[in-house]
Amino acid sequence: MSDTTMMQAENICRYYGKQRALNNISFIASKGEVTGFLGPNGAGKSTLMQIVSGVLAATTGTVSISGFNIIKQPASARSALGYLPDKPPLYIDCNIDTYLLYCAQLRNVPSDKQQSQVEIAKQVCGLEGEGKRLIQKLSKGYQQRIGLAQAIIHSPEVLILDEPSSGLDPNQMVEMRKMILELRKDHCIIFSTHILSEAFQLCDRIIIINSGEKVLEQPISFFNNQSALEEIYVKETKTMPLNNTEITNDL
């Protein structure tokens, strides 16, 4: 693992009963880099995001965050990561400040820094002056911003974003992309999407997964333009046989 390697996933497999959701996925993500996971719906992107964020355990394989194994050293590994699931994990009956303060406490931010970290996260996500507003009264775009704010509240080294712009209108999508580009300077960002234009604009490296398998991993320079990415994406996600119902004898 080099000095800049922030996340290392090795041979990740995940089964739901006998159904295989992920098969032997390995990758490395470094600081200052945006790694995008592309794939059709049901490809296993969200499962992979949950595994690398410690929400779900892999059936086999290991995940290290900042050198800490997420199963053997869960507290250290989880302190170094921020996770925005596909649906922001909000308590809608709270106001923004109360929610973010709770997130800071959960992420082990020292008590004397909690308030300042809340202010910084709000500033980065464009939530200044909104702290007293109830989350349930806010639009989907604002709720997504709060979701992003909770993920960066403890200045994690690794930021995992699961379809961060899903359900947003075009203006909100542009805003969200700007925020991600801003955050890439200080974080190692891993995000999943099925929007090819978004992946092309944001990523330094693209990993395409289909039916739980990694089918391609290339730097963004590999794709001359967005059309080339589209062409390769369509080719790679069509050629793989569906293996969602594959029953293996390994277990």
Binding site: G54, R78, Y83, C103, R107
Partner: peptide, 14 residues
């Protein structure tokens, strides 16, 4: 139901 459990499960809390 709301998915906020993922906040707890991805945080350094046992």
């Amino acid at each position: 139901n709301s998915g906020s459990i993922k906040l707890l499960l991805s945080s350094p809390i046992s």
